[in-house]
């Protein structure tokens, strides 16, 4: 089971759309995942209890303290509601076998 967090500035509009889209993508790819959404401030402080974080490219700087040593993988999206881009990023990062 993959624990996924999606985030946006206010944790209100965009991240809710991201969550709905991500649920569709994970289901389509046959990946077992739970998806939560949170505002960016909270997301940064709780990121390490997740496996994967999707965040808008404009907010990626907030995660600059995370390295490859961390458990969590931070992935930025240009179009946060694009299912195509999410799928492509999941493939690039080896989540799809």
């Amino acid at each position: 089971m993959l624990k996924v967090l999606v985030t946006c500035g206010n944790g209100m509009g965009s991240s809710l759309m991201m969550k709905l889209k991500a649920e569709g993508v994970f289901k389509k790819l046959g990946l077992d995942a739970t998806i939560d959404h949170a505002p960016i401030g909270q997301a940064v402080s709780m990121a390490n209890s997740f496996d994967l974080v999707f965040c808008p490219l404009s907010l990626i700087d907030q995660f600059k303290d995370f390295t490859s040593k961390d458990r969590v993988k931070i992935v930025s999206l240009v179009n946060v509601i694009s299912e195509k881009e999410m799928e492509q990023k999941l493939r690039e990062n080896g989540y799809v076998k």
């Binding site: 965009s14 808008p56 490219l57 240009v78 946060v80």
Partner: peptide
């Protein structure tokens, strides 16, 4: 039609 913040990634940061 989605939250305006979705457009922010399409502008210089």
């Amino acid at each position: 039609a989605v939250d305006a913040a979705v457009t922010y990634s399409f502008a210089p940061s």
